[in-house]
Amino acid sequence: MEPGTLVYDPHTRKVGEYQDRTGPYVMLRPVGGGREWQADPARIREATLDERLSAGVRALNDRSREGLSADPTRPPSPVPGCAGCEELALRRDRARAAFDASAVTDANVLLRQHQRDEHGGESAGRRIFRYVPYTIVQDASAQPEYEAYCVSGEEEDCGASSGPCQAPGEVEEWQRRHTQETRHLRYRRSFADYAVLERQG
């Protein structure tokens, strides 16, 4: 597969640009730029025309929302004088000091969401596709789900799962218990919610 080929990763449900192989994985880059992720080469496939178009529109929307010069890989900066921003930035600093990359990522996500909600960005859970007469809206009738999978193991992953949880704290508590019982330290965490499309106009 040639570098730059657009492929679909069913695990993340995202389209990415094929970069290269790294050990047993392939590296994919988000359309429009951003942080690369690992994918199983046996599961990815070339993206369909609709998937490529959708990914391109989404990348343009993201750039329009954040500014054409914005770097999506750069951590958000707190707004001076905002207590909410300062609290989340402090949480991120503590996670960095503890070398907890997952908690750093969580803090960045929460800080971006806070800034959208409180400092003039688009409302949380809502993304508008420009030039397309639909809006994707988070389904308020369904609760989001959090889940963790143990991926510790030398030859194969442990595979233990917390199962769907209603809050991040429940997942973290399961991780602590599982680590105490098994000494396993590496987990893959996921978040899922439900969305509906509303026609514009």
Rank of each mutant, 00 (worst) to 15 (best):
Q19V: 12
E87Q: 11
D20C: 06
Y8F: 13
V31P: 03
A124H: 04
Q113D: 15
R63V: 10
Y131R: 12
S102W: 01
P75C: 08
A101Y: 00
D100Q: 07
G120I: 08
G120C: 12
H119I: 12
R186T: 04
V31Y: 00
Y25N: 09
R127C: 10
G169L: 10
R199H: 05
G32K: 04
T182Q: 14
D139H: 01
M1A: 10
V79W: 08
R21C: 03
R188V: 10
R127E: 15
S77W: 08
A95R: 06
G120S: 12
V104T: 06
P30N: 04
E170V: 01
Q180R: 10
R94S: 08
L6R: 07
V137F: 03
R92L: 00
Q113V: 14
T182S: 15
E118V: 13
A83C: 06
T12H: 06
C158E: 15
A160T: 07
L6C: 04
G33Q: 02
Y187M: 04
C165V: 01
E181R: 14
P30I: 02
P24R: 07
E118G: 11
E198W: 01
A39V: 14
S102M: 03
E170H: 05
G121M: 07
D50T: 13
A95T: 13
V109F: 07
D139R: 06
R13S: 00
S162F: 07
L60Q: 14
L110S: 08
R92Y: 01
A98V: 05
G67A: 02
G163A: 11
E170F: 02
V15Y: 05
H114Q: 05
G159E: 12
S64M: 04
G153F: 13
E17W: 03
Y8P: 06
V31T: 03
S161G: 14
V109Y: 00
V171E: 01
E172C: 08
S123N: 10
A160S: 13
H11Y: 06
H184I: 14
M1V: 12
L90N: 09
R35T: 15
Q143S: 10
E66N: 11
F129C: 03
P76A: 14
Q113S: 15
P144M: 07
P133K: 13
A160Y: 06
L49Q: 14
C82A: 09
P76W: 03
R176Y: 06
Q115L: 09
Q166T: 13
P41F: 11
E17I: 00
Y146S: 08
R63L: 14
Y146Q: 01
R43C: 14
R35H: 13
A195G: 06
R199D: 01
A107R: 12
A55T: 12
D117A: 09
G163F: 13
D40C: 13
P10Q: 13
L110E: 01
R189I: 00
A39Y: 11
G23H: 02
A59R: 04
S152K: 11
T48M: 09
P144E: 04
E173A: 15
C158G: 11
